[in-house]
Structures are given as structure tokens and as C-alpha cells.
């Protein structure tokens, strides 16, 4: 198990998660990421402590509100839970997010794996 080099830094699941979250939020039509029960439990439960201790490890999963990232053998797998703007076609927004996230993962030197997206809410932008 060796660290993945990137400009002398280490690409962690946490980094991938925050990259994916930021990319998603920059995609037109995305209102926000949606925390889920899993996210809530993870924040309170032992898994949250595990995440804190293990934030830098590879081959682990990093979870935060609305985003989870796993790195396995050089491939990054991302899950995103999003809320979209009712003025956009939700499926198109999800596909744009998927494409952009895969692209930004490829810039880290990791192989983009599946990017799973769940649209949890559709609302008018306030």
C-alpha cells in the first residue's frame, strides 16, 4: 500500500471528496449537497472518529455531508447527493456533474471510477 504521489503531496480520499464537492457546487443547476442519515450518523458515530484519524489513508472511504469518496488501487469512486434547481433538467445537471467530477479526478493522477449521483431534492432557487 503506497501513497499516490501528486506534486509531492498525497492524494487522499478526503481530497477527492472535497474536490468532487467543489466541482459539483460549481456546476450550474446544483443548489447544494444534501446531508443524509448516513452522513449524520457518521458525524456522530465511531465512523466519524475513524474518518478523523484516517483522513489521510488510502483504500479507505471518506464521508462528509453529501459526498463520499473511496480510493481503491489508484481508482477513485465518488458518491454525491445533490439538490438541484427546478429551472434545470435534473438528469442533465447530474450528467454534467458526473462528467466534470471525472475530469477533475483525472487531473490528480488517479483513474476516475464511477461517479454515482443521487438527486435528493429539486427546488426553486431562492
Amino acid at each position: 500500500m503506497s501513497d499516490q504521489p501528486l506534486n509531492g503531496k498525497v492524494v487522499t480520499s478526503q481530497l477527492i471528496a472535497s474536490l468532487a464537492a467543489r466541482t459539483a457546487l460549481e456546476t450550474p443547476g446544483v443548489l447544494r449537497l444534501e446531508p443524509t442519515i448516513t452522513g449524520f450518523v457518521a458525524r456522530l458515530g465511531p465512523a466519524a472518529l475513524q474518518n478523523l484519524r484516517n483522513a489521510g489513508s488510502q483504500n479507505g472511504t471518506y464521508r462528509h455531508d453529501g459526498v463520499a469518496a473511496t480510493i481503491s488501487d489508484g481508482t477513485a469512486h465518488v458518491r454525491l447527493d445533490i439538490a438541484t434547481d427546478i429551472a434545470y433538467v435534473a438528469l442533465n445537471v447530474a450528467e454534467a456533474v458526473q462528467q466534470r467530477v471525472r475530469e477533475s479526478i483525472s487531473h490528480t493522477g488517479l483513474t476516475p471510477g464511477p461517479v454515482d449521483i443521487c438527486i435528493l431534492a429539486i427546488e426553486p432557487r431562492s
Binding site: V78, A83, I86, P114, V115, I117, L120, A121
Partner: peptide, 19 residues
Amino acid sequence: LHSTVNGTTEISEQALSSI
């Protein structure tokens, strides 16, 4: 809604209901 090797897209019943 959609599934390819690049990932799956799902929608919650709540989001669909809100539409």
C-alpha cells in the same frame, strides 16, 4: 434514472414528488 460504467444517476421519490 440512468446507469453507465461512468456511474449511476438516481433520484429520490421526494425530489420527483416536488416536481
